[in-house]
Amino acid sequence: MPDHRLFDAEGRPRPVSLPEVRVADVTKRFGRRKSEVVALDGFDLTLAPGTMTALVGPSGCGKSTVLRMIAGLDRATSGGVTIDGQPPGAVNRRGEVAVAFQDAALLPWRTVEANIALARQLAGQDRADELVANLIMMVGLAGFERARPAELSGGMRQRAAIARCLATGPRLLLLDEPFGAVDELTRRRLNIELPRLWEEHGATGLLVTHSIPEAVLLADEVVVMSPRPGRVIARIPVPLSRPRNAAQLKSQTFLEVADRVAEALGVDRDEPGVPLQPAAAPMPAIPRIKLAAGGAG
């Protein structure tokens, strides 16, 4: 596994080769004609090498779409995404990109160990049992190597998913609301653990989140997006020192930055009617049942 730690043993920044990601003048439309939705319009974003950028914005503003395009999972309608000048596909195949999904995306029939090893398998790398064991230790899952996802709590599943992300030694880490599905207590715990893991591993990073404290604690810069079609409306640097720690959550700097982000998002105001998200469609009388199971699964 290549060593691109951001800090040396004394906590000094190390010079390492990490990718720069450019999203240039990207437009993304979904659907056809009448039902067309413009998710992004002329969107620009640059991820500086070795930094963590947080992308925050109201629901449906296209922030996950940006992440998916960088991951090579979606294609832009126009404009382009490059990783060190190359299109995403080629970079992905070398295991240099890792994505953390909101639902952990662990395969239920594989053990924790085997789920983490899957990433190396998919990236065409050797098994590296020792590395997998180390990662399990690092994320605090020692003793659960043989457990299946169903036996783990939500937080433990996310830890396993993060270990899987790191297993291929990625230089680009894409986190799509990684803690969106875990409870608040676990989330706070993981928010403190993740920066440490990321700093030790070293990678260019993008974090998509709804949580302002999460964005501020993890990122070097918070990018605030407008409602659909998503545009960048503010870029707020986070002047907190690294490595990050729990004490910083109570620092004056943290609170000020969090306030600026909230300000840019337009939340925390007393007057009603701030349109954070499009009006929800009326709930159907009966929730949708997945037809995939033939209606009887």
């Binding site: 998916r68 090579g72 992905n92 890792a98 639902d103 990433a119 998919l122």
Partner: peptide
């Protein structure tokens, strides 16, 4: 098709296609 969309996405995020998705997921 009865798999969460994140499972095929996981395979695709490593640049692998339908065949690997079929095998692994």
């Amino acid at each position: 098709k009865a798999v969460p969309s994140s499972w095929p996405d996981l395979v695709a995020s490593y640049g692998r296609g339908r065949f690997q998705t079929l095998i692994h997921v």
